[in-house]
Computed example of a mutant assay.
Amino acid sequence: MSVQLSILFYVKKSKANLQSYTNIYLRITIDGKRAECSINRKVHTDLWNSRLQKALGNSSENQEINREIDFIKNKIYTIEQKFQRDGTTYTAAQLLDVYVGKDKTKKMLLEILQEHNDKVDSLIGKDFAAGTAERYRTCKKHVTDFIKKKYKKNDVPVKDVDHKFITGLEYYLKTTRKCAHNSAIKYITNFKKIIRIAHANDWIDKDPFLYWKAKLKIVEREFLNEEEIQRIIEIELKMERLDQVRDIFIFCLFHGSGICRCQKIE
């Protein structure tokens, strides 16, 4: 990302009051496009140096104005650096919005995902199973990789998620990630919950999933034969947990719980 940022502080002498005091303005210019606002400071027109963009004199009032100008300039550069670290494109108006605090309700997609996943992790064993938490973590990883590949960014505002984003993510899962149809749909369904949270909190104006429809495909699973079952029984597992899982699987298989499918063994 290559942008040309210019920061200018100036006064409008024509707007001075009867005592010759006038407002100091901030102008941000990026690639020729401007955004400006008052910094809520006044200076005497005779004590403003346009070339230095500073108040003249040693009075405590003017020294405070100059400190404020330096602070604002540093803050704007810090905001610009954050945009660049996040890989987010920005304009002069967006930079100014962040400075004045107009973007406080702006939420980033991966931040919302992480906040949700942190809550799920804290409720494992209470409201969520460990497997559910793992699926959401995997979902976040897929969305993160998709954003980097498709948009060349580290994150995007949640308001930028639209129908095109959703169908693009589905295509990415099925092609780049080689997910089967049902697996891809399940990840999109997990992602859908995050977007519904954003909509409920008014972080987005409308639900981009309104026109997204997908159905799971019915999959005919193959039966296990006697030889395959015997191989599962005899396999040496080094982890006690996996050994227990195998025993439960075999128990369910022979007792017709409906969890597993196999050929009838005479």
Score class of each variant (00 low, 15 high):
residue 91 T to H: 03
residue 39 I to S: 09
residue 11 V to T: 14
residue 252 C to Y: 12
residue 193 K to W: 04
residue 172 Y to K: 03
residue 176 T to P: 03
residue 24 I to V: 14
residue 142 H to M: 11
residue 121 D to C: 07
residue 152 K to Y: 10
residue 18 L to D: 13
residue 98 V to F: 07
residue 196 R to L: 15
residue 166 I to D: 03
residue 31 D to F: 09
residue 111 E to A: 12
residue 157 P to S: 05
residue 173 L to N: 12
residue 202 D to W: 05
residue 71 F to I: 02
residue 56 L to D: 01
residue 264 K to V: 08
residue 227 E to I: 14
residue 140 K to W: 00
residue 145 D to I: 05
residue 35 A to F: 08
residue 127 D to A: 09
residue 210 L to F: 09
residue 170 E to L: 15
residue 27 R to M: 14
residue 230 Q to M: 15
residue 171 Y to L: 15
residue 100 V to K: 15
residue 51 R to P: 02
residue 154 N to G: 15
residue 101 G to Q: 03
residue 183 S to M: 02
residue 265 I to E: 07
residue 94 Q to Y: 06
residue 16 A to E: 13
residue 54 K to G: 04
residue 154 N to A: 10
residue 259 I to S: 05
residue 232 I to E: 00
residue 232 I to D: 00
residue 111 E to H: 12
residue 82 K to R: 13
residue 226 E to G: 02
residue 261 R to W: 04
residue 95 L to K: 09
residue 40 N to L: 12
residue 68 E to A: 07
residue 44 H to I: 11
residue 122 S to Y: 07
residue 235 I to G: 00
residue 30 I to C: 11
residue 169 L to N: 02
residue 200 A to F: 10
residue 40 N to P: 00
residue 98 V to I: 14
residue 215 K to P: 03
residue 171 Y to D: 10
residue 68 E to W: 10
residue 48 W to E: 01
residue 220 E to P: 00
residue 135 R to K: 15
residue 183 S to W: 04
residue 1 M to V: 11
residue 230 Q to C: 04
residue 250 I to F: 07
residue 27 R to V: 05
residue 196 R to G: 02
residue 33 K to M: 02
residue 160 D to P: 03
residue 162 D to P: 03
residue 11 V to F: 01
residue 234 E to C: 01
residue 231 R to E: 06
residue 109 L to G: 02
residue 206 K to L: 03
residue 110 L to F: 09
residue 99 Y to F: 15
residue 160 D to M: 11
residue 32 G to R: 15
residue 129 A to Q: 13
residue 120 V to F: 01
residue 262 C to F: 06
residue 158 V to G: 00
residue 11 V to Q: 01
residue 60 S to N: 13
residue 101 G to T: 05
residue 164 K to G: 09
residue 154 N to S: 07
residue 255 H to M: 06
residue 172 Y to W: 10
residue 110 L to C: 11
residue 4 Q to C: 06
residue 209 F to Y: 12
residue 240 E to R: 10
residue 132 T to F: 04
residue 67 R to Y: 11
residue 25 Y to A: 05
residue 194 I to M: 02
residue 261 R to D: 05
residue 37 C to L: 01
residue 184 A to N: 06
residue 256 G to Y: 12
residue 201 N to L: 12
residue 219 V to P: 11
residue 226 E to A: 13
residue 68 E to I: 08
residue 146 F to S: 10
residue 20 S to M: 12
residue 257 S to A: 03
residue 108 M to E: 05
residue 86 D to I: 02
residue 266 E to R: 10
residue 200 A to N: 15
residue 104 K to I: 14
residue 216 L to P: 01
residue 99 Y to E: 08
residue 226 E to N: 09
residue 256 G to W: 08
residue 250 I to R: 08
residue 192 K to C: 04
residue 112 I to C: 01
residue 38 S to Q: 05
residue 40 N to M: 09
residue 131 G to I: 02
residue 59 S to I: 04
residue 89 T to M: 09
